[in-house]
Amino acid sequence: MPALFDGPSPTTWLGIDMGGTGTRWVLRGAGGAVLARGEGPGATGLVFSATAEAAFRAALAPAAEAVARFGAAAAVLGVTGAGLDPDAALVALCAEALGLPAARVRVLNDMVLAWHAAFPAGGGHLVAAGTGSVGMSIAEDGTITLVGGRGTLIDDAGSGAWLALRALDRVWRAIDEAGSPRGVEPLAQALFSRIGGDDWDDTRRYVYGRDRGALAALAPAVAEAATAGSAVALHLLTEAGAELARLARVLVARCGPAPVGVVGGVLGLHPAVGEAMRAAAPGISLTVLSLDAAARAAELAQEGTRTA
C-alpha cells in the first residue's frame, strides 16, 4: 500500500476493526509485538445523526483509553458503512475520538481491511457474512469490485440481519393465519426468548427501535430452531448459504477465477449454511477464514509510516 502518514518514525500503531455488532482493536509495538488488544460495542460509519455519532464514539472509547495509556503514532481503521473513497468528516471524527491528529488516521471500508487481512499478497476474492453480507475483490492495479453490501433495506442477503428478518416474517405470517405460531413453534420460541416477549409490540420495539446489529443478534435463534428440528429454520439457513454462494459466483464471473475466502459469523451458525454455499458454487474453491483484521490494520499503519 502507499504511504499513509507523514512525520517521524513511530513506535506504536493502532488498528481497529469496527463492525455492526462489535469493535476490535490492537495496539502494535516495535517488532510487531502486541502491546494491548480489546473489544468495544459495534457501530457504523453511517454517522448521520447524533445517536449514531454517540454510538460511534462509544465504540472507539476503549481504543482511545489504550491510546491515552500507550500512545499511538498512527492508526488505520476498518469501519463498516464507510465508503470506498476517503471521507474527511469521518476521519476527523475518528481522530478526535482517539485523540490523534487527522493526518495520522486512515479510515477504510471494513471489507477493504478484511480483504487485505485475508490476502496480504493479493490474488483472491472475499465474501463476508456477518451483520451484513458483501463480496469484494481488489485487482493488482487497486481496482475494487464490490458486490452486495447494500444494507438490510435493499439486500444483505445471507447475512445475520437478513436471516433474522426472514425468520420474523415467517413467524408473524403464521400468527396472522392461525392466531398462533402454528407450524413454526420452535422458531417463534427461539426468537421471542431473545426479543423478550411474544407480543407484536415486543417485536415492533425490538426491530424498529434498534440497529441492524441487534437484528443480527437474533440470527442464532434460527440456528437453534433448526437444531431443534424446525424445517422452516433449516430452509432459511439453506437459503442464506445459497445467497452467499451467489456473491462468490459473481466475483469469479466478473474478476476471474481465484480462491474465495469466506468470513463472518453466519458460517458458524449451522452446518447447513456452508453446505448450501458449497453446493451452489460448484467449481469454486471456498475456504472459511478466521481473520485478525484489527491486527492487520495495525500492521498497515506501521507499514504506512515506515514508507513515509
Rank of each mutant, 00 (worst) to 15 (best):
A3S: 15
S9N: 00
M18V: 05
G19E: 09
G19M: 11
G22T: 01
G31Q: 09
L35M: 14
A36R: 12
P41C: 13
A58F: 03
A61W: 04
A68I: 00
A74V: 11
T80H: 09
G83I: 14
V91T: 15
L98G: 01
G99N: 08
P101S: 12
A103C: 11
V107E: 03
V112P: 02
A117Q: 02
F119R: 06
G123P: 06
L126Q: 06
A128S: 15
T131K: 11
S137V: 02
A139D: 06
A139E: 06
A139T: 06
D141P: 07
V147N: 05
T152K: 03
S159A: 11
R166A: 15
R166M: 13
V171I: 15
I175K: 12
R182S: 14
G183T: 12
P186K: 09
P186S: 04
L191R: 12
F192N: 08
G196K: 11
G197Y: 07
D202K: 08
T203W: 08
G213C: 09
A216E: 05
P220H: 01
V222K: 03
T227V: 15
S230T: 01
L234E: 14
H235Q: 15
A242D: 13
A248M: 07
L251I: 05
C255I: 08
G256D: 07
A258L: 10
P259K: 07
V263A: 09
V263S: 07
A279I: 04
S285M: 11
V288Y: 06
L291A: 03
L291H: 02
A295S: 13
A298Q: 08
T305V: 11
R306P: 00
T307F: 09
A308E: 12
A308T: 01
